[in-house]
Computed example of a mutant assay.
Amino acid sequence: MAKVLVPLADGCEELEAVTIIDLLRRAGIEVTTAGLKPGIVSASRGVQLVPDVTLDVALQDDYDMVVLPGGMPGAAHLKDDPRIIRLLQEMAAAGRYTAAICAAPMVLAEAGVLDGRQATSYPGFLDGLPGVRVRAEAVVQDGSVLTSRGPGTAMDFALALVEVLAGAGKRQQVEAGLVRP
């Protein structure tokens, strides 16, 4: 079974975080949520999220994928955390998946993960970055890197993550249960 780490920072976009966690777990994927610091995470709209563990505890394990929810200032907190940058660099060097949505692709860029790659983000967060080919699609996959645009694309993004980690059949099974149009 695939293992995924979802770091949670104060000010993260709750719709993105919860959608990612929920759909991955529906697919039977092991998801660990990790707060940058101990305690409850206060998301961008005031929703309180309770991480499974702290990031320091989570970093004692290995993961097949790291997924960064967006939102501000949550994505900025992720970008400013050297543990997150180091983890993303290690994941990329090992050929493992890194993924980010909304403002969080800027964290991938900060870690050098987007160099020479195609990516998308919330409008403006990747503009002008050298070496990044910005796309406008809802979800962009370039090798082991997946990015998405924002809260409105969170379900498409999470389903793409399911497909990458568990296959098209599992994606179809999860999506059927959602009763999407």
Rank of each mutant, 00 (worst) to 15 (best):
V6S: 01
P7R: 07
E14A: 13
L15V: 15
L15I: 14
L15D: 01
E16T: 09
V18K: 00
T19V: 08
I20M: 07
I21C: 08
P38Q: 07
P38C: 04
Q48P: 00
Q48V: 09
P51Y: 02
D52Y: 01
A58S: 02
L59E: 08
V66M: 04
V67D: 02
G71N: 10
M72P: 02
P73R: 03
G74P: 10
A75P: 07
L78N: 00
L78Y: 06
K79C: 07
D80G: 05
D80A: 12
L87V: 06
L87D: 00
A92H: 15
R96C: 05
A100D: 06
C102K: 01
M106D: 12
A111I: 04
V113G: 01
V113E: 05
L114P: 07
S121R: 05
P123L: 08
G124T: 09
G128W: 13
G128H: 12
G131H: 05
R133T: 13
R135I: 08
A136Y: 14
E137N: 13
A138Q: 08
V145E: 05
L146D: 00
S148D: 06
R149W: 09
G150C: 12
T153V: 11
A154I: 11
M155F: 13
A160S: 13
A160R: 13
V164K: 10
V164P: 07
L165K: 06
V179A: 11
R180Q: 11
P181M: 10
